[in-house]
Write a protein that binds this DNA or RNA. Structure first.
Lengths: 139, 139
DNA sequence: TTAAAAGTGGCTAAAAGTGGCCAAAGTATC
DNA sequence: GATACTTTGGCCACTTTTAGCCACTTTTAA
């Protein structure tokens, strides 16, 4: 999934997910905390399961932080007939979601941002880093 | 694709794409932010997919800025029967498109500029750098 | 000058988004 | 332990937006 789509949280903490996401991710998918960014990461079921398997294959003690952070904040969500999902309070707080949110498709997965945070992220994205990456990728 | 073609945005944010582009790029193509320039880049489907593969092959953390910038702003577009595409608000803002736009074919890909920005770019293009490149290329 | 093709504007229909209402489940209080 | 109230989730219906299509205009080429 690619591109940016805006939505809003209603008074019950529900939000619309863009049709494109439903089309590409299917009827159910997983949402959980990101690592390093104040946003929610959206996984396809199979990708989520693969991730859990990877964690399961690690030594228990070593994997504990990631297990608690990722798996401990993950929810399987199923959009209702209107295409809405309800975002659990934990994740709403983590991603600082208030009213306006942005769903960003970044290929294999998608991200859910508070609009203000996303704007900030875009502004702070380092142009030099981008330019370097552009050189590496030759684009 | 080569050459410069002018078009305009209508009240719905749609614009005509030159027939040459449709002929060379096919029935569907990808548009997304550029790196370093305030314009929209137009990719052939196969070129876009190759780019995404390249990004997918990079370490996730390293690729994140580019992923968010490029893939997060990308849309697959299919011209309607009149040969128009609608340009999503995000890209319109990024490229500062208002009314008059210019489509520039620069070989493997094309660019969509706001007319004023394109004029500026032409004026500011550094003659010394150009001269150096001419020497390198021996043209 | 005429005809064909491309461009533009506007209209309509379908789909997507939003708000509100209702029912069910869980919790708290009496 | 039972009843009432609150909260959550699901569904219905209305509104709004989007996109596709038709028709008219303009341009270009023969």
């Amino acid at each position: 999934m690619t591109g940016e789509f805006k939505s809003t949280l209603d008074s019950k903490g529900r939000m619309n997910v863009p049709i494109k996401l439903r089309e590409e991710f299917g009827e159910r998918f997983f949402i959980s905390k990101t690592i390093g960014s104040r946003c929610i990461k959206v996984y396809k079921v199979e990708d989520w399961q693969a991730l859990v398997s990877k964690i399961d294959d690690m030594p228990l003690v070593q994997a504990q932080p990631v297990r608690r952070h990722l798996i401990g904040s993950a929810y399987e969500v199923i959009p209702d007939k209107q295409g809405r999902i309800s975002v659990p309070p934990t994740l709403r707080e983590y991603a600082k979601l208030s009213l306006d949110v942005v769903v960003v498709g970044v290929g294999k997965y998608a991200e859910i941002w508070d609009k203000a945070e996303w704007t900030l992220e875009n502004e702070q994205r380092d142009n030099e880093t981008l330019a370097e990456l552009a050189t590496v990728l030759n684009i």
